[in-house]
């Protein structure tokens, strides 16, 4: 009971920031109300910050982590070799795949001799963390800056290869070069590498 209020100071940088003593002008509180009204009123003449969705859309960053895409190579063969690293690295366990062996007449469809017969991502489980993209050693799976659309049925959120694999048409391919480092883009120009042809 020796001291009324003990102070605890650990550093020399502290500074008391709250001042609870009110001046006379603050006590009569009309000036504060008028000041507040003026601030609110001034906002009437400012530029609107709301975006008129869906007529106007916000600029989404190029590296946004949205809907996945399974890439094809330049000749239209699927890059995925069903190694399973993406499914293993997925913290939400959203990826399911069944591997199959490539037949002799499927050389134009699949790049490697093993391919993913079934490749499903459950978009309700997926947390869009981007670890599958990082884990892929074959440049096969990427996230895009598209947003997964809503749906009425839970089943429709399980995206199979029909929705994930990018179109065969060269003009409709999805450009993911913004997500790759400059060193990778440089490397991809070297056509002597077996990865690039």
């Amino acid at each position: 009971m020796t001291e009324e209020k003990k102070t605890y100071t650990f550093t020399t940088r502290s500074k008391v920031v709250s001042n609870k003593k009110m001046t006379f002008m603050e006590k009569i509180y009309f000036p504060a109300i008028i000041k507040g009204m003026l601030i609110t009123f001034s906002h009437l003449f400012k530029k609107k910050t709301t975006i008129q969705y869906p007529e106007v859309k916000r600029n989404i960053a190029e590296i946004y982590r949205g809907k996945h895409v399974l890439k094809r190579d330049d000749e239209g063969r699927e890059r995925c070799t069903a190694c399973g690293l993406c499914a293993l690295s997925c913290p939400a366990e959203a990826i399911t795949m069944i591997a199959a062996e490539r037949k002799a007449d499927e050389m134009h469809l699949y790049r490697e001799e093993k391919y993913a017969k079934v490749y499903e991502i459950n978009m309700l489980r997926c947390i869009f963390c981007g670890l599958c993209e990082e884990a892929c050693p074959k440049e096969a799976i990427f996230l895009t800056n598209e947003i997964v659309p809503s749906n009425y049925e839970r089943e429709n959120f399980i995206y199979g290869k029909d929705k994930l694999v990018e179109p065969m048409d060269k003009d409709k391919r999805i450009d993911i070069s913004k997500r790759q480092t400059t060193a990778v883009l440089e490397f991809k120009k070297d056509k002597n590498q077996s990865h690039n042809n």
């Binding site: 650990f10 550093t11 940088r13 008391v16 920031v17």
Partner: peptide, 29 residues
């Protein structure tokens, strides 16, 4: 800190080079 104790992990147990910078630890009463 609002009670008046100027305990801040950034100052007391500096990590990630926070001690390169000088900043005030605000406290209340």
């Amino acid at each position: 800190r609002a009670t008046g104790v100027d305990y801040d992990v950034r100052v007391m147990n500096s990590y990630s080079s926070y001690n390169d910078f000088d900043f005030i630890v605000p406290v209340g009463t």
